[in-house]
Design a protein around this nucleic acid. Sequence first.
DNA 1: ATCCAATTGTGTTGGAATTACACGTTTCGC
DNA 2: GCGAAACGTGTAATTCCAACACAATTGGAT
Lengths: 258, 258
Amino acid sequence: MMAEHHLSIEFLGDEAGEYLPHLAVDCVVFGFHAGQLRLLLTHWKQRGRWSLPGGFVRRDESVDDAAHRVLRLRTQLDHVFLEQFHTFGGLNRRDEVIEHLFDDTPRARTTGAFINERFVSVGYYALVEWAEVTPTADGVLTDECRWWDVFDRPALLFDHDEIVDHALGVLRSQLGRRPIGLNLFPETFTLPELQRLYEAILGRPLDRRNFQKKMRDLGILERVGELRAAGVRRAPYLYRFDRPRYEEALREGISMGR
Amino acid sequence: MMAEHHLSIEFLGDEAGEYLPHLAVDCVVFGFHAGQLRLLLTHWKQRGRWSLPGGFVRRDESVDDAAHRVLRLRTQLDHVFLEQFHTFGGLNRRDEVIEHLFDDTPRARTTGAFINERFVSVGYYALVEWAEVTPTADGVLTDECRWWDVFDRPALLFDHDEIVDHALGVLRSQLGRRPIGLNLFPETFTLPELQRLYEAILGRPLDRRNFQKKMRDLGILERVGELRAAGVRRAPYLYRFDRPRYEEALREGISMGR
DNA sequence: ATCCAATTGTGTTGGAATTACACGTTTCGC
DNA sequence: GCGAAACGTGTAATTCCAACACAATTGGAT
């Protein structure tokens, strides 16, 4: 909960001048569980609607660091895979519902109303291991933080639906050019699981045989053993990523179909 | 010269409060001439060094519009191909040489020293037709604006070398996925010229026969006639882009090697 | 015990796309 | 008219991708 004390009602005017005005970061946090691509969302206490986890940029931290900090606050995780993908700087970024969200607080009226100003937002997307996350609301502006199915989520505040769509587009376009999964799965996983991740992101089914061949040929997988547990049928093999090779593939880029 | 009056010494503090503080746009403007990929740079009067054309964001304009405005001021061109590619928000964005560039002006000392604060910069790259550009310095902070060879340019101020490298990387990665050239060439051009553009961006030679076959098969070119003028040898054909098909290829994406 | 349904692992094959490579054409200088 | 330089086009080999078939494993039904 470090630094959360700033999110008091005082913060509406950022009276300490700790943050850069007009600038925010928003994080599209992707997870994968039970065959579904999921999204971490926070619920705004005062208006009963959901938005992406976001925050502001301290005067003494980089924008990347701000995104990491926001993520740490909402997930309790450090060192997650996080990448900037677009900056949203339109004039239509406010939401009629929330436009004057804080106008009726004494602070907002008397100060510069920091939070009611126009914001330019730098969008990041994160890939995290679902089970490792402890979704955490700040308890002041937001009272809940939890996972949603990406494709079955509530309408979001501000322009956050657009931001999610953009992030999904970037994720899709990168799916064929770099490996994915190291950050989304636990240590070991099965190829059918990995395939379901690809299918969830692409939104279309893939051929199991071609997928497995392609994956094997990438040389970034290590077979570990057999999975017996779940099935009423044949158990799939367990795999783990070969870290050095995975990271090399990340640097050099790969080719995985379209 | 519209709105250039803001770039007076008064501007150092942005006393009118017309701009968002701490936020800037920088434009990597690419052109192509005489077989070279070129870059539009501006020369800072007070320090004798070069930087990317950049500017600030008005409170009542989108960040995209700010980039277009900056571009219009430096090139006298409107409606150019312009795309955001990354936002630079590190803490190391200042330049020791220029760190206190304006400290000795009375304004900077007495006001908030708008321009001496930390800036987060949204990077755009533009593709423009070299011959159409009228490079224009603002005459206040900068006294010269002209083209440089991308690969033979002076060391730039701030982190602008990094920004240029990043833009080049994005341009390279997109070269195989969308058509290019409509914005960089005049109405008509030749295939050897187009190939030299690709080679300049990729930094490696391409096979002429495969390149032409690929280009022809894309179906975005119209042959116009023969070019007689220049050569001491066989004249290449002239082509023009088929606009509707070109724009469709831009939307749908293409595959051009890698 | 046998069979079946569901799911997984692996191989093959045909076509498309990419790459490597060869030859004929035009122009001008000599 | 001969050759050098640059242009235009075609062909063969290879690699990549998409479609497809079959054997193996498991638990439950018969």
